[in-house]
Design a protein around this nucleic acid. Structure first.
Lengths: 252, 252
DNA sequence: CAGTGGTCTAGACCACATT
DNA sequence: ATGTGGTCTAGACCACTGT
Protein backbone atom coordinates (compact mmCIF):
# COMPACT_ATOMS: atom_id res chain seq x y z
CA UNK A 1 0.00 0.00 0.00
CA UNK A 2 2.92 2.30 0.49
CA UNK A 3 4.85 2.09 -2.77
CA UNK A 4 2.63 3.58 -5.45
CA UNK A 5 5.03 2.68 -8.26
CA UNK A 6 4.32 -1.04 -7.84
CA UNK A 7 0.55 -0.65 -7.66
CA UNK A 8 -1.38 -1.77 -10.73
CA UNK A 9 -3.58 1.29 -10.55
CA UNK A 10 -0.60 3.63 -10.66
CA UNK A 11 1.23 3.15 -13.93
CA UNK A 12 2.89 6.55 -13.70
CA UNK A 13 5.76 7.43 -11.46
CA UNK A 14 5.45 9.79 -8.52
CA UNK A 15 7.54 12.70 -9.71
CA UNK A 16 7.09 15.78 -7.54
CA UNK A 17 4.58 18.30 -6.33
CA UNK A 18 1.49 17.68 -4.24
CA UNK A 19 0.40 14.09 -3.69
CA UNK A 20 -3.24 14.86 -4.45
CA UNK A 21 -2.28 16.19 -7.90
CA UNK A 22 -0.61 12.89 -8.59
CA UNK A 23 -3.68 11.01 -7.39
CA UNK A 24 -5.83 13.18 -9.63
CA UNK A 25 -3.59 12.40 -12.58
CA UNK A 26 -3.86 8.70 -11.89
CA UNK A 27 -7.64 8.94 -11.68
CA UNK A 28 -7.64 10.79 -15.02
CA UNK A 29 -5.72 7.88 -16.53
CA UNK A 30 -8.30 5.40 -15.26
CA UNK A 31 -10.99 7.57 -16.87
CA UNK A 32 -9.11 8.00 -20.15
CA UNK A 33 -8.39 4.27 -20.36
CA UNK A 34 -12.08 3.58 -19.81
CA UNK A 35 -11.60 1.59 -16.60
CA UNK A 36 -14.05 3.99 -15.00
CA UNK A 37 -16.94 4.44 -17.42
CA UNK A 38 -19.49 7.26 -17.74
CA UNK A 39 -22.48 6.70 -15.48
CA UNK A 40 -20.68 4.24 -13.23
CA UNK A 41 -19.74 4.87 -9.63
CA UNK A 42 -16.05 5.05 -8.78
CA UNK A 43 -14.84 3.24 -5.64
CA UNK A 44 -15.77 4.81 -2.32
CA UNK A 45 -13.39 7.37 -0.89
CA UNK A 46 -12.39 5.04 1.95
CA UNK A 47 -11.58 2.29 -0.52
CA UNK A 48 -9.54 4.64 -2.71
CA UNK A 49 -7.59 5.91 0.28
CA UNK A 50 -6.70 2.32 1.13
CA UNK A 51 -5.85 1.44 -2.46
CA UNK A 52 -3.56 4.43 -2.86
CA UNK A 53 -2.26 4.09 0.68
CA UNK A 54 -3.05 7.70 1.55
CA UNK A 55 -5.35 9.64 3.80
CA UNK A 56 -9.00 10.04 2.90
CA UNK A 57 -8.66 13.83 2.95
CA UNK A 58 -6.08 13.67 0.18
CA UNK A 59 -8.36 11.49 -1.93
CA UNK A 60 -11.16 13.99 -1.38
CA UNK A 61 -8.97 16.85 -2.55
CA UNK A 62 -8.19 15.02 -5.79
CA UNK A 63 -11.87 14.24 -6.32
CA UNK A 64 -12.77 17.85 -5.48
CA UNK A 65 -10.80 19.08 -8.47
CA UNK A 66 -12.33 16.54 -10.83
CA UNK A 67 -15.78 17.49 -9.57
CA UNK A 68 -14.89 21.14 -10.17
CA UNK A 69 -14.09 20.27 -13.78
CA UNK A 70 -17.41 18.43 -14.15
CA UNK A 71 -15.64 15.14 -14.76
CA UNK A 72 -16.99 13.48 -11.63
CA UNK A 73 -20.26 14.05 -9.81
CA UNK A 74 -20.71 13.54 -6.08
CA UNK A 75 -24.00 12.36 -4.62
CA UNK A 76 -24.21 12.22 -0.89
CA UNK A 77 -25.19 8.81 0.44
CA UNK A 78 -24.95 7.22 -3.04
CA UNK A 79 -21.44 7.56 -4.31
CA UNK A 80 -19.26 9.46 -6.80
CA UNK A 81 -20.05 8.95 -10.49
CA UNK A 82 -18.36 9.56 -13.80
CA UNK A 83 -20.25 12.39 -15.49
CA UNK A 84 -22.54 11.54 -18.40
CA UNK A 85 -23.93 13.78 -21.10
CA UNK A 86 -27.66 14.11 -20.63
CA UNK A 87 -30.05 16.87 -21.66
CA UNK A 88 -29.79 18.71 -18.38
CA UNK A 89 -26.03 18.86 -18.48
CA UNK A 90 -26.06 20.15 -22.04
CA UNK A 91 -28.60 22.78 -21.19
CA UNK A 92 -26.78 23.87 -18.07
CA UNK A 93 -23.20 23.94 -19.30
CA UNK A 94 -23.02 23.98 -23.08
CA UNK A 95 -26.17 25.52 -24.51
CA UNK A 96 -26.16 29.26 -23.96
CA UNK A 97 -28.88 30.41 -26.33
CA UNK A 98 -31.89 31.51 -24.30
CA UNK A 99 -35.12 33.40 -24.84
CA UNK A 100 -35.12 37.08 -23.97
CA UNK A 101 -37.52 36.21 -21.21
CA UNK A 102 -38.74 32.95 -19.84
CA UNK A 103 -37.06 29.69 -18.90
CA UNK A 104 -34.38 27.78 -20.77
CA UNK A 105 -35.66 25.55 -23.54
CA UNK A 106 -34.16 22.42 -24.97
CA UNK A 107 -33.73 22.74 -28.76
CA UNK A 108 -35.51 20.53 -31.25
CA UNK A 109 -32.65 19.30 -33.47
CA UNK A 110 -33.26 18.31 -37.10
CA UNK A 111 -30.56 16.85 -39.30
CA UNK A 112 -30.21 18.66 -42.64
CA UNK A 113 -27.08 17.20 -44.16
CA UNK A 114 -24.61 14.42 -43.46
CA UNK A 115 -21.51 13.98 -45.60
CA UNK A 116 -17.97 12.71 -45.57
CA UNK A 117 -15.28 15.10 -46.76
CA UNK A 118 -11.78 16.40 -46.23
CA UNK A 119 -10.57 18.85 -43.62
CA UNK A 120 -9.91 22.37 -44.86
CA UNK A 121 -7.24 24.58 -43.35
CA UNK A 122 -9.40 26.03 -40.58
CA UNK A 123 -11.00 22.77 -39.48
CA UNK A 124 -7.65 20.95 -39.60
CA UNK A 125 -6.09 23.65 -37.46
CA UNK A 126 -8.87 23.60 -34.87
CA UNK A 127 -9.10 19.81 -34.74
CA UNK A 128 -5.36 19.18 -34.67
CA UNK A 129 -5.41 17.03 -37.83
CA UNK A 130 -3.77 17.39 -41.23
CA UNK A 131 -5.36 19.29 -44.11
CA UNK A 132 -7.14 16.77 -46.28
CA UNK A 133 -7.74 14.24 -43.50
CA UNK A 134 -11.14 12.58 -43.57
CA UNK A 135 -13.89 14.38 -41.68
CA UNK A 136 -17.64 14.14 -41.27
CA UNK A 137 -19.69 17.24 -42.01
CA UNK A 138 -23.08 17.53 -40.38
CA UNK A 139 -25.60 20.33 -40.67
CA UNK A 140 -28.37 20.62 -38.10
CA UNK A 141 -31.24 23.03 -37.80
CA UNK A 142 -32.25 23.81 -34.24
CA UNK A 143 -35.74 25.01 -33.36
CA UNK A 144 -36.75 26.85 -30.21
CA UNK A 145 -40.36 27.59 -29.39
CA UNK A 146 -41.34 26.01 -32.69
CA UNK A 147 -39.32 28.29 -34.93
CA UNK A 148 -35.87 27.72 -36.46
CA UNK A 149 -33.25 29.76 -34.60
CA UNK A 150 -29.84 28.12 -35.06
CA UNK A 151 -27.95 26.49 -37.93
CA UNK A 152 -25.13 24.23 -36.73
CA UNK A 153 -22.34 23.15 -39.09
CA UNK A 154 -20.34 20.43 -37.37
CA UNK A 155 -17.00 18.98 -38.45
CA UNK A 156 -15.78 15.74 -36.85
CA UNK A 157 -12.41 14.03 -37.39
CA UNK A 158 -13.35 10.69 -38.97
CA UNK A 159 -10.46 8.90 -37.26
CA UNK A 160 -12.08 9.40 -33.88
CA UNK A 161 -15.59 8.44 -35.00
CA UNK A 162 -15.15 5.14 -36.86
CA UNK A 163 -18.34 3.91 -38.47
CA UNK A 164 -20.36 7.01 -37.74
CA UNK A 165 -23.36 7.18 -40.04
CA UNK A 166 -26.39 9.29 -40.67
CA UNK A 167 -28.66 6.77 -38.96
CA UNK A 168 -26.99 7.32 -35.59
CA UNK A 169 -27.66 11.01 -35.88
CA UNK A 170 -31.30 10.55 -36.79
CA UNK A 171 -31.99 7.99 -34.07
CA UNK A 172 -30.06 9.84 -31.38
CA UNK A 173 -32.07 9.48 -28.18
CA UNK A 174 -30.41 12.24 -26.18
CA UNK A 175 -27.87 14.93 -27.05
CA UNK A 176 -25.14 14.87 -29.67
CA UNK A 177 -22.48 14.84 -26.99
CA UNK A 178 -24.25 11.86 -25.47
CA UNK A 179 -23.84 10.09 -28.81
CA UNK A 180 -20.10 10.85 -28.87
CA UNK A 181 -19.83 9.42 -25.37
CA UNK A 182 -22.01 6.34 -25.73
CA UNK A 183 -20.95 5.25 -29.21
CA UNK A 184 -17.33 6.41 -29.34
CA UNK A 185 -16.19 6.80 -25.74
CA UNK A 186 -15.54 10.49 -26.22
CA UNK A 187 -16.55 12.70 -23.29
CA UNK A 188 -16.75 16.40 -24.09
CA UNK A 189 -15.53 18.17 -20.98
CA UNK A 190 -15.10 21.76 -22.08
CA UNK A 191 -15.67 24.00 -25.09
CA UNK A 192 -13.98 27.14 -26.31
CA UNK A 193 -16.09 29.58 -28.32
CA UNK A 194 -15.48 32.68 -30.39
CA UNK A 195 -18.43 34.90 -31.23
CA UNK A 196 -18.86 37.51 -33.91
CA UNK A 197 -21.63 39.31 -35.80
CA UNK A 198 -22.22 38.44 -39.44
CA UNK A 199 -24.85 38.80 -42.14
CA UNK A 200 -27.00 35.87 -43.25
CA UNK A 201 -25.94 34.15 -46.46
CA UNK A 202 -28.58 32.70 -48.77
CA UNK A 203 -28.46 29.25 -47.17
CA UNK A 204 -28.78 30.39 -43.58
CA UNK A 205 -31.44 32.93 -44.46
CA UNK A 206 -33.56 30.25 -46.11
CA UNK A 207 -33.21 27.84 -43.21
CA UNK A 208 -33.88 30.47 -40.58
CA UNK A 209 -36.74 32.05 -42.49
CA UNK A 210 -34.97 35.41 -42.72
CA UNK A 211 -34.03 37.90 -45.38
CA UNK A 212 -30.56 37.64 -46.84
CA UNK A 213 -28.12 39.94 -44.97
CA UNK A 214 -30.11 39.82 -41.76
CA UNK A 215 -27.74 40.09 -38.77
CA UNK A 216 -26.69 36.73 -37.30
CA UNK A 217 -24.59 35.77 -34.33
CA UNK A 218 -21.80 33.46 -35.43
CA UNK A 219 -20.30 31.05 -32.90
CA UNK A 220 -17.17 29.06 -33.71
CA UNK A 221 -16.77 26.33 -31.14
CA UNK A 222 -14.09 23.77 -30.44
CA UNK A 223 -15.16 20.95 -28.11
CA UNK A 224 -12.46 19.30 -26.00
CA UNK A 225 -12.26 16.00 -24.18
CA UNK A 226 -9.91 15.00 -21.36
CA UNK A 227 -6.46 16.58 -21.50
CA UNK A 228 -7.57 19.37 -23.82
CA UNK A 229 -7.83 17.13 -26.89
CA UNK A 230 -10.12 18.69 -29.56
CA UNK A 231 -12.85 16.39 -30.91
CA UNK A 232 -15.39 18.65 -32.63
CA UNK A 233 -15.38 21.91 -34.55
CA UNK A 234 -18.72 23.63 -34.93
CA UNK A 235 -19.88 26.86 -36.52
CA UNK A 236 -23.30 28.04 -35.39
CA UNK A 237 -25.38 30.86 -36.81
CA UNK A 238 -28.01 32.21 -34.46
CA UNK A 239 -30.97 34.45 -35.20
CA UNK A 240 -30.97 36.75 -32.18
CA UNK A 241 -34.25 38.45 -32.90
CA UNK A 242 -36.01 36.66 -30.05
CA UNK A 243 -33.21 34.62 -28.49
CA UNK A 244 -29.80 35.66 -27.21
CA UNK A 245 -26.51 34.26 -26.04
CA UNK A 246 -26.27 34.32 -22.30
CA UNK A 247 -23.02 34.39 -20.34
CA UNK A 248 -21.80 34.94 -16.79
CA UNK A 249 -18.33 36.26 -16.04
CA UNK A 250 -16.32 36.18 -12.84
CA UNK A 251 -17.58 32.88 -11.50
CA UNK A 252 -14.19 31.38 -11.94
CA UNK B 1 -12.97 34.38 21.37
CA UNK B 2 -14.78 31.19 22.06
CA UNK B 3 -18.39 32.26 22.06
CA UNK B 4 -19.16 33.53 18.59
CA UNK B 5 -22.51 35.03 19.55
CA UNK B 6 -20.87 37.58 21.86
CA UNK B 7 -18.02 38.39 19.50
CA UNK B 8 -18.15 41.79 17.81
CA UNK B 9 -17.21 40.22 14.51
CA UNK B 10 -20.20 37.91 14.52
CA UNK B 11 -23.37 39.97 14.56
CA UNK B 12 -25.45 37.21 13.04
CA UNK B 13 -26.83 34.22 14.84
CA UNK B 14 -25.70 30.66 14.14
CA UNK B 15 -28.82 29.19 12.62
CA UNK B 16 -28.22 25.84 10.95
CA UNK B 17 -26.31 24.09 8.23
CA UNK B 18 -22.54 23.74 7.89
CA UNK B 19 -20.37 25.80 10.19
CA UNK B 20 -18.07 26.92 7.38
CA UNK B 21 -21.03 28.41 5.48
CA UNK B 22 -21.81 30.47 8.54
CA UNK B 23 -18.19 31.57 8.82
CA UNK B 24 -18.25 32.51 5.13
CA UNK B 25 -21.38 34.57 5.68
CA UNK B 26 -19.76 36.39 8.58
CA UNK B 27 -16.69 37.13 6.48
CA UNK B 28 -18.94 38.48 3.72
CA UNK B 29 -20.48 40.85 6.27
CA UNK B 30 -17.05 42.13 7.27
CA UNK B 31 -16.33 42.75 3.59
CA UNK B 32 -19.68 44.41 2.90
CA UNK B 33 -19.35 46.65 5.95
CA UNK B 34 -15.90 47.67 4.76
CA UNK B 35 -14.05 46.35 7.81
CA UNK B 36 -11.90 44.38 5.43
CA UNK B 37 -10.95 46.70 2.56
CA UNK B 38 -9.84 45.90 -0.98
CA UNK B 39 -6.11 45.39 -1.21
CA UNK B 40 -5.70 44.71 2.50
CA UNK B 41 -4.74 41.39 4.02
CA UNK B 42 -7.31 39.66 6.15
CA UNK B 43 -6.15 38.08 9.44
CA UNK B 44 -4.10 34.90 9.17
CA UNK B 45 -5.97 31.62 9.10
CA UNK B 46 -4.64 30.66 12.53
CA UNK B 47 -5.82 33.96 13.98
CA UNK B 48 -9.26 33.58 12.40
CA UNK B 49 -9.61 30.05 13.71
CA UNK B 50 -8.88 31.36 17.19
CA UNK B 51 -11.19 34.34 16.82
CA UNK B 52 -14.08 32.17 15.63
CA UNK B 53 -13.17 29.39 18.05
CA UNK B 54 -13.09 26.76 15.32
CA UNK B 55 -10.60 24.54 13.57
CA UNK B 56 -8.25 25.99 10.98
CA UNK B 57 -9.55 23.54 8.38
CA UNK B 58 -13.03 24.98 8.69
CA UNK B 59 -11.71 28.51 8.24
CA UNK B 60 -9.86 27.35 5.15
CA UNK B 61 -13.03 25.87 3.68
CA UNK B 62 -14.87 29.18 4.11
CA UNK B 63 -11.95 31.06 2.54
CA UNK B 64 -11.79 28.48 -0.27
CA UNK B 65 -15.28 29.43 -1.39
CA UNK B 66 -14.59 33.16 -1.28
CA UNK B 67 -11.41 32.59 -3.27
CA UNK B 68 -13.45 30.58 -5.78
CA UNK B 69 -15.73 33.58 -6.21
CA UNK B 70 -12.75 35.88 -6.73
CA UNK B 71 -13.59 37.85 -3.61
CA UNK B 72 -10.40 36.90 -1.76
CA UNK B 73 -6.97 36.08 -3.17
CA UNK B 74 -4.53 33.73 -1.48
CA UNK B 75 -0.77 34.26 -1.72
CA UNK B 76 1.39 31.61 -0.19
CA UNK B 77 3.82 33.00 2.37
CA UNK B 78 2.25 36.48 2.24
CA UNK B 79 -1.36 36.24 3.30
CA UNK B 80 -4.93 36.36 2.02
CA UNK B 81 -6.07 39.63 0.47
CA UNK B 82 -9.35 41.27 -0.47
CA UNK B 83 -9.48 41.33 -4.28
CA UNK B 84 -8.89 44.64 -6.03
CA UNK B 85 -9.76 45.69 -9.57
CA UNK B 86 -6.59 46.14 -11.54
CA UNK B 87 -5.94 45.90 -15.26
CA UNK B 88 -4.95 42.26 -15.12
CA UNK B 89 -8.09 41.21 -13.32
CA UNK B 90 -10.28 43.11 -15.78
CA UNK B 91 -8.51 41.56 -18.72
CA UNK B 92 -8.65 38.08 -17.27
CA UNK B 93 -12.20 37.98 -15.99
CA UNK B 94 -14.33 40.72 -17.48
CA UNK B 95 -12.94 41.72 -20.85
CA UNK B 96 -13.69 39.04 -23.40
CA UNK B 97 -13.02 40.83 -26.68
CA UNK B 98 -9.82 39.48 -28.20
CA UNK B 99 -8.00 39.62 -31.53
CA UNK B 100 -8.58 36.74 -33.91
CA UNK B 101 -4.97 35.84 -33.36
CA UNK B 102 -2.38 37.12 -30.98
CA UNK B 103 -2.36 37.96 -27.28
CA UNK B 104 -4.97 39.80 -25.25
CA UNK B 105 -4.74 43.56 -25.42
CA UNK B 106 -5.84 46.12 -22.90
CA UNK B 107 -8.24 48.63 -24.50
CA UNK B 108 -7.49 52.32 -24.80
CA UNK B 109 -10.63 53.93 -23.33
CA UNK B 110 -11.75 57.42 -24.43
CA UNK B 111 -14.68 59.22 -22.83
CA UNK B 112 -17.20 60.50 -25.40
CA UNK B 113 -20.13 61.67 -23.32
CA UNK B 114 -20.99 62.16 -19.68
CA UNK B 115 -24.50 63.18 -18.63
CA UNK B 116 -26.99 62.96 -15.83
CA UNK B 117 -30.43 61.66 -16.72
CA UNK B 118 -33.37 59.54 -15.66
CA UNK B 119 -33.66 55.77 -15.73
CA UNK B 120 -35.79 54.39 -18.53
CA UNK B 121 -37.78 51.18 -18.17
CA UNK B 122 -34.99 48.82 -19.22
CA UNK B 123 -32.23 50.41 -17.16
CA UNK B 124 -34.50 50.69 -14.11
CA UNK B 125 -35.40 47.04 -14.41
CA UNK B 126 -31.79 45.87 -14.75
CA UNK B 127 -30.49 48.15 -11.99
CA UNK B 128 -33.31 47.47 -9.55
CA UNK B 129 -34.32 51.14 -9.28
CA UNK B 130 -37.52 53.02 -10.11
CA UNK B 131 -38.26 54.44 -13.54
CA UNK B 132 -37.24 58.09 -13.50
CA UNK B 133 -34.62 57.70 -10.77
CA UNK B 134 -31.44 59.70 -11.35
CA UNK B 135 -28.73 57.95 -13.34
CA UNK B 136 -25.43 58.81 -14.94
CA UNK B 137 -25.00 58.03 -18.63
CA UNK B 138 -21.48 57.56 -19.91
CA UNK B 139 -20.37 56.76 -23.44
CA UNK B 140 -16.87 55.43 -24.01
CA UNK B 141 -15.05 54.53 -27.19
CA UNK B 142 -12.58 51.67 -26.81
CA UNK B 143 -9.64 51.23 -29.17
CA UNK B 144 -7.69 48.05 -29.73
CA UNK B 145 -4.54 47.98 -31.81
CA UNK B 146 -5.01 51.67 -32.53
CA UNK B 147 -8.46 51.39 -34.11
CA UNK B 148 -11.89 51.95 -32.53
CA UNK B 149 -13.61 48.59 -31.90
CA UNK B 150 -16.15 49.01 -29.11
CA UNK B 151 -18.74 51.62 -28.10
CA UNK B 152 -19.77 51.33 -24.45
CA UNK B 153 -22.95 52.97 -23.17
CA UNK B 154 -22.93 52.80 -19.40
CA UNK B 155 -25.81 53.57 -17.02
CA UNK B 156 -25.07 54.02 -13.32
CA UNK B 157 -27.61 54.54 -10.52
CA UNK B 158 -26.76 58.01 -9.18
CA UNK B 159 -27.71 57.02 -5.64
CA UNK B 160 -24.78 54.63 -5.44
CA UNK B 161 -22.27 57.02 -7.00
CA UNK B 162 -22.68 60.30 -5.09
CA UNK B 163 -20.61 63.12 -6.52
CA UNK B 164 -19.43 61.25 -9.58
CA UNK B 165 -18.25 63.69 -12.21
CA UNK B 166 -16.70 63.70 -15.64
CA UNK B 167 -13.28 64.57 -14.22
CA UNK B 168 -13.04 61.27 -12.36
CA UNK B 169 -13.64 59.41 -15.57
CA UNK B 170 -11.06 61.36 -17.50
CA UNK B 171 -8.35 61.06 -14.82
CA UNK B 172 -9.05 57.43 -14.07
CA UNK B 173 -5.66 55.80 -13.52
CA UNK B 174 -6.74 52.18 -13.88
CA UNK B 175 -9.99 50.50 -14.92
CA UNK B 176 -13.54 51.75 -14.54
CA UNK B 177 -14.28 49.03 -12.02
CA UNK B 178 -11.24 50.20 -10.09
CA UNK B 179 -12.83 53.65 -9.94
CA UNK B 180 -16.07 52.21 -8.59
CA UNK B 181 -14.09 50.39 -5.93
CA UNK B 182 -11.67 53.13 -4.92
CA UNK B 183 -14.04 56.10 -5.00
CA UNK B 184 -17.35 54.51 -4.04
CA UNK B 185 -16.50 51.29 -2.23
CA UNK B 186 -18.30 49.21 -4.85
CA UNK B 187 -16.57 45.96 -5.78
CA UNK B 188 -17.85 44.37 -8.97
CA UNK B 189 -17.70 40.63 -8.37
CA UNK B 190 -19.60 39.17 -11.29
CA UNK B 191 -21.31 40.21 -14.50
CA UNK B 192 -24.19 38.73 -16.47
CA UNK B 193 -24.18 39.32 -20.22
CA UNK B 194 -26.61 38.81 -23.08
CA UNK B 195 -25.26 38.90 -26.61
CA UNK B 196 -27.01 39.44 -29.91
CA UNK B 197 -26.25 40.51 -33.47
CA UNK B 198 -27.42 43.91 -34.66
CA UNK B 199 -26.80 46.43 -37.41
CA UNK B 200 -24.83 49.61 -36.81
CA UNK B 201 -26.88 52.79 -36.33
CA UNK B 202 -25.55 56.11 -37.58
CA UNK B 203 -23.86 56.98 -34.28
CA UNK B 204 -22.06 53.70 -33.81
CA UNK B 205 -21.07 53.53 -37.44
CA UNK B 206 -19.48 56.97 -37.24
CA UNK B 207 -17.59 56.19 -34.05
CA UNK B 208 -16.38 52.80 -35.25
CA UNK B 209 -15.49 54.04 -38.72
CA UNK B 210 -17.98 51.70 -40.40
CA UNK B 211 -20.82 51.91 -42.87
CA UNK B 212 -24.30 52.19 -41.49
CA UNK B 213 -25.95 48.75 -41.14
CA UNK B 214 -22.63 46.96 -40.75
CA UNK B 215 -23.06 43.92 -38.45
CA UNK B 216 -22.22 44.57 -34.81
CA UNK B 217 -22.12 42.36 -31.77
CA UNK B 218 -24.31 43.83 -29.06
CA UNK B 219 -23.56 43.00 -25.42
CA UNK B 220 -25.97 43.95 -22.66
CA UNK B 221 -24.20 43.58 -19.33
CA UNK B 222 -25.31 43.89 -15.74
CA UNK B 223 -22.46 44.17 -13.23
CA UNK B 224 -23.11 42.86 -9.72
CA UNK B 225 -21.42 43.45 -6.39
CA UNK B 226 -21.58 41.32 -3.24
CA UNK B 227 -24.87 39.51 -2.68
CA UNK B 228 -25.94 39.86 -6.32
CA UNK B 229 -26.72 43.58 -6.06
CA UNK B 230 -26.68 45.25 -9.52
CA UNK B 231 -24.54 48.39 -9.80
CA UNK B 232 -24.00 49.00 -13.51
CA UNK B 233 -25.89 48.44 -16.75
CA UNK B 234 -23.85 48.59 -19.91
CA UNK B 235 -24.63 48.14 -23.59
CA UNK B 236 -21.60 47.52 -25.78
CA UNK B 237 -21.42 47.43 -29.55
CA UNK B 238 -18.45 45.56 -30.94
CA UNK B 239 -17.05 45.58 -34.46
CA UNK B 240 -16.12 41.92 -34.92
CA UNK B 241 -14.29 42.32 -38.20
CA UNK B 242 -10.89 41.76 -36.59
CA UNK B 243 -11.79 41.08 -32.98
CA UNK B 244 -14.18 38.56 -31.44
CA UNK B 245 -15.84 37.62 -28.19
CA UNK B 246 -14.10 34.73 -26.54
CA UNK B 247 -15.75 32.34 -24.08
CA UNK B 248 -15.03 29.03 -22.38
CA UNK B 249 -17.81 26.70 -21.24
CA UNK B 250 -17.72 23.82 -18.80
CA UNK B 251 -15.08 25.16 -16.45
CA UNK B 252 -17.64 25.44 -13.71
C1' DC C 1 -29.21 -1.42 8.93
C1' DA C 2 -24.78 -0.69 6.33
C1' DG C 3 -22.52 2.18 3.14
C1' DT C 4 -21.82 6.52 1.07
C1' DG C 5 -20.26 11.37 0.86
C1' DG C 6 -20.08 15.86 4.02
C1' DT C 7 -18.29 18.24 7.98
C1' DC C 8 -15.08 19.16 11.59
C1' DT C 9 -11.16 18.55 14.53
C1' DA C 10 -6.14 19.03 16.14
C1' DG C 11 -2.35 18.53 14.98
C1' DA C 12 2.41 17.96 11.94
C1' DC C 13 5.23 19.38 8.49
C1' DC C 14 6.35 21.79 3.94
C1' DA C 15 6.98 25.82 0.68
C1' DC C 16 7.33 30.43 0.30
C1' DA C 17 7.94 35.52 1.40
C1' DT C 18 9.55 38.92 4.36
C1' DT C 19 12.47 40.79 7.85
C1' DA D 1 14.07 33.50 12.11
C1' DT D 2 9.32 34.34 11.80
C1' DG D 3 4.93 34.24 9.79
C1' DT D 4 2.12 33.03 6.07
C1' DG D 5 -0.62 29.79 3.23
C1' DG D 6 -0.37 24.65 1.31
C1' DT D 7 -0.35 19.77 2.11
C1' DC D 8 -1.29 15.63 4.63
C1' DT D 9 -2.73 12.75 8.35
C1' DA D 10 -6.03 9.92 11.33
C1' DG D 11 -9.54 10.00 13.18
C1' DA D 12 -14.83 11.30 14.83
C1' DC D 13 -19.32 12.20 13.84
C1' DC D 14 -23.28 13.82 10.78
C1' DA D 15 -26.59 13.51 6.74
C1' DC D 16 -28.30 10.95 3.31
C1' DT D 17 -29.44 6.71 0.40
C1' DG D 18 -30.62 2.22 -0.28
C1' DT D 19 -31.79 -2.47 1.49
Amino acid sequence: MSDASTDSTSPGVRLSGPLYKDVKRQMMELLTRGEWKPGEAIPAERRLSERFGISIGTVRKAIDELVGENILIRQQGRGTFVATHNRDRLLFYFFHVVAEEGPKEYPDVRLQQFAKGKADRVAADRLGVEIGDAVFRIRNLLRLGGTPVIVDDIVLPAARFPGLDEKQFRERPSTIYNLYQEAFGISVVRTSERLSATLADADSAALLDLEKNAPLLQIRRVALTYNEVPVEYRVSHVNTMHYEYWNELGRS
